[in-house]
Design a protein around this nucleic acid. Sequence first.
DNA 1: ATAAACCTTGGAGGTAGGTCACAGGTCAAG
DNA 2: CTTGACCTGTGACCTACCTCCAAGGTTTAT
Lengths: 148, 148
Amino acid sequence: MYRIGELAKACHINNDTLRFYEKNGLLCPSSRTESGYRLYTEGDREILQFILRAKDVGFTLAEIKELLSIEINKADKACADVKILVDIKLNAVEKKLAELSRFHTSLKRLSDACCGSSISAEHCTILEALESDTDDVRHERHHKQGGK
Amino acid sequence: MYRIGELAKACHINNDTLRFYEKNGLLCPSSRTESGYRLYTEGDREILQFILRAKDVGFTLAEIKELLSIEINKADKACADVKILVDIKLNAVEKKLAELSRFHTSLKRLSDACCGSSISAEHCTILEALESDTDDVRHERHHKQGGK
DNA sequence: ATAAACCTTGGAGGTAGGTCACAGGTCAAG
DNA sequence: CTTGACCTGTGACCTACCTCCAAGGTTTAT
Ligand SMILES: [Zn+2]
Ligand SMILES: [Zn+2]
Ligand SMILES: [Zn+2]
Ligand SMILES: [Zn+2]
């Protein structure tokens, strides 16, 4: 049996994080001492590690909650139920990746165009690009307007 | 001169967003009517578009505030001042991109390994991977531990 | 004249995932 | 018996960016 501080230390997280997970229904300690201290079992620790691993592949806590509810009664669930969650996430990650790549492309272009010297910024190409709407700043303008 | 609703509509944003930008020192209307209505000039509109373009390449409002303070007195600033902001952002974007790619790799591996059928999830490779700490879930474990 | 559409302020709420502070209770060691 | 480490609950705060509400004042159109 772990007390909160022990489990937290063992898993390199904060005591408050464990309380937070409990408040949000992700991990409740199996029991309490008479004086109210939380007591976590080995099983609890395994659940926590499940949570931490899921976080590590990018799932949000809300998504992890869904995963846990499947994990807890696997027998009544199908492989497809699990895979759907992963694929939805995969899709979301791909979308974010695309947006970030767009940012990256734009920023790189801005950076490369600027001389970066100690000369006055009055003719800085970066500022100019942000002042006037040119393709140098945003290639996606028309896509975004049309897509909305 | 634009009233708040006119400017908002012209730039496809919410009136409240304009008030929010004002409250946060990003864009203050040049004047007000006797009754207190905000009045924006063409110049104000250009600043707003600067803000929206900067947002579009990924800058946060705090970063945009810095960019604006340079833009407003360009003459006293150097190209390097601008480029530094862009390069810091570029770096941050690259880091996020790397994290997301890591998520993507892990999720893809999980998805590919799961049969996705309607058979019981008891043998699901995704759940198994999340239950026990294997390289199938996280390649980066050692990097992360060492790097902290 | 009056209703619709617009504007004002202030403040709350919401997402995501915690972190921190406070005031006090519990427990082991010396 | 006292110190210090640990625990409890509640609730505020943080980043980031708005969005919405209430209660009321102003313009504009009919
Ligand atoms: Zn230059
Ligand atoms: Zn420059
Ligand atoms: Zn399967
Ligand atoms: Zn499966």
